[in-house]
């Protein structure tokens, strides 16, 4: 659908925005950050944080064949080229964004309803893409619209597929 809209020249609400015109909303991951934001005259918008069970990253714990030192990476191909010895493979969601069950977006007092912003670090575990060894890549930064009580992200989980990065 997105592709068809593009072909027809129909822009989404977010595509009509100019990135440079938008304010950046930062995220408070700790209580200290939250209190500092309040002290600096910002508001907080609390968001529940639950680990997304669909997030799947692998961690290959390896031993260097020459030094014997332990290391880790996520690429099976490195095993073939480095000759490292695989000790174990772990799967899961790491690194964890926070150990708390919540985080908060730091809102300027004058944020307006339906204002478009840039979220600097998305709180929820939203999947942006996959790569061909099965790992998921999380959405970190995106545009969003403030409805007055929550953010609508520029994120379509159905589009979460790519094998390259641009930036």
């Amino acid at each position: 659908m997105k592709r068809i809209k593009k072909l027809l020249g129909i822009k989404s609400e977010f595509e009509k925005q100019n990135w440079n015109d938008l304010r950046v909303i930062r995220t408070a991951w700790t209580v200290d950050d939250m209190n500092e934001a309040l002290d600096s005259d910002f508001d907080l918008h609390f968001v529940d944080y639950h680990q997304n069970p669909q997030v799947n990253m692998k961690l290959l714990v390896v031993k260097d064949k020459e030094t014997g030192k332990i290391g880790y990476h996520s690429d099976y191909r490195l095993l073939m080229t480095s000759g490292d010895i695989l000790i174990n493979t772990y799967y899961g969601n790491f690194p964890l964004k926070t150990t708390l069950p919540f985080a908060a977006y730091i809102l300027p007092k004058d944020i307006k309803k339906n204002e478009y912003v840039v979220i600097g670090h998305v709180i929820e575990d939203l999947i942006e893409g996959y790569w061909n060894q099965g790992d998921t890549v999380l959405l970190t930064m995106c545009m969003a619209r403030w409805t007055g009580n929550k953010f609508i992200y520029d994120h379509d989980p159905k589009q979460a597929k790519k094998n390259h990065f641009v930036g």
Binding site: M57, L59, Y72, H73, S74, D75, R77, L78, W131, N132, Q133, D135, N163, H164, F165
Partner: peptide, 8 residues
């Protein structure tokens, strides 16, 4: 990502 090393 198919042509470079991917890892943490």
């Amino acid at each position: 990502i198919d042509s470079i090393k991917i890892g943490n």
